[in-house]
């Protein structure tokens, strides 16, 4: 044995490399390790770029699956920003009793304006209400035939901005209903509440859709990686025969999944942005009709980050599942 070792070293066949590697410092070994990961990462991307069409198909499927919940999320955010503008438009109409005089109505208005939860009060007399109704309803001449004005005077209350919560508004309405001269107090916010209800459903819907499509992405990546594993069966067997560890064999497949996910995320981002760009013109027209300066907001940084991060982690998970299931089945014989 001793003689053999000497011989091997003389012929340059000794284990010189191994001992040299052992002498490498920890940081150098770590660098080597990171370098190998980086190489595998690039190698996996190179493998994908060799079959650009197949890669694009897979990535596009992932992209569409990710774009749907992301797009819906962005649309909801936009609707929300529109609503936040209308929130402050919540107002309470106090219909006064028929016998309330103009002076007593104005007195009540002044009294109410003192309250901290009320920003301002507009007085609309019965006559004003009538003429406005004539002008807007189109019943102009028919209304002139009425002997007396059937409309009551109205106090329009604009609540202070910090009092906009639905419960607070409701409480204010109850209080105002108790005022002696008030016949009817009506909160003009029912439709905002309903819209918020719809928005809640929408938000929940985004999550349901996102979960289902995340599952779809997992399956797409998993299946693609499964096929890749089967295509490279010989390579896996040979690598196992010459001492490749499971981690070594797993690595390129995991990075392939990583790229699928990341590229899918990028495609999803581009798709959502492109859709918003297509919608921007009509939305601006519509906003113009409502005298609003509203503009469609694009994908914000959080959403973009979530899209890319979600994409690549789904890609990694999908390939991990496939690799875990199928790599063990392939053993040399």
């Amino acid at each position: 044995m001793e003689r053999n070792r000497t011989l091997r070293e003389q012929h340059g066949l000794g284990n010189g490399g191994a001992s040299r590697r052992r002498r490498l410092g920890g940081s150098s070994a770590l660098n080597n390790y990171l370098l190998r990961h980086a190489q595998t990462l690039i190698y996996a991307l190179g493998q994908l770029s060799r079959r650009p069409f197949a890669t694009l198909m897979t990535v596009a499927v992932i992209g569409i699956a990710l774009a749907m919940p992301a797009g819906l999320h962005v649309m909801l955010k936009n609707v929300q920003s529109v609503l936040s503008g209308w929130d402050s438009a919540a107002q309470i109409s106090l219909f006064l009793q028929k016998d309330a005089t103009e002076s007593s109505a104005l007195a009540l208005a002044t009294q109410l304006e003192q309250r901290s939860e009320i920003a301002s009060v507009d007085y609309i007399s019965a006559e004003q209400a009538m003429s406005e109704f004539q002008r807007l309803s189109g019943f102009g001449d028919a209304l002139k035939a009425l002997e007396e004005n059937p409309l009551p005077a109205v106090l329009v209350i604009h609540p202070a901005l910090q009092q906009q919560g639905p419960e607070q508004l409701q409480r204010l309405v109850e209080e105002l209903r108790g005022e002696a001269k008030v016949d009817l107090a009506q909160l003009d916010m029912q439709w905002v509440k309903r819209l918020y209800g719809l928005m809640d459903i929408g938000r929940r819907g985004v999550w349901v859709l996102a979960s289902l499509l995340a599952l779809a992405v997992l399956l797409v990546v998993g299946n693609t990686i499964r096929l890749a594993i089967q295509n490279r069966r010989d390579e896996i067997v040979i690598t196992k025969l010459i001492g490749g560890t499971d981690a070594f064999i797993r690595r390129p497949f995991l990075y392939t999944g990583f790229w699928y996910g990341l590229l899918g995320g990028v495609i999803a981002f581009v798709m959502v942005e492109a859709s918003l760009w297509v919608l921007a013109g009509p939305v601006n027209n519509l906003a113009g009709l409502y005298n609003s300066s509203f503009h469609l907001a694009g994908v914000d940084l959080d959403t973009a980050g979530a899209l890319l991060l979600g994409g690549l982690s789904l890609g990694l998970c999908g390939s991990w599942l496939a690799v875990g299931r199928h790599l063990r089945e392939i053993e040399p014989t």
Binding site: D234, E235, V237, I238, K240, L241, I242, G243, G244, T245, D246, F248
Partner: peptide, 17 residues
């Protein structure tokens, strides 16, 4: 794998990539 690294195996069908 680490055991196999200490053994060089040559196959009749070469098993090349």
């Amino acid at each position: 794998p680490f055991h196999r690294r200490n053994i060089g195996v040559i196959f009749q069908d070469h098993r090349l990539l």
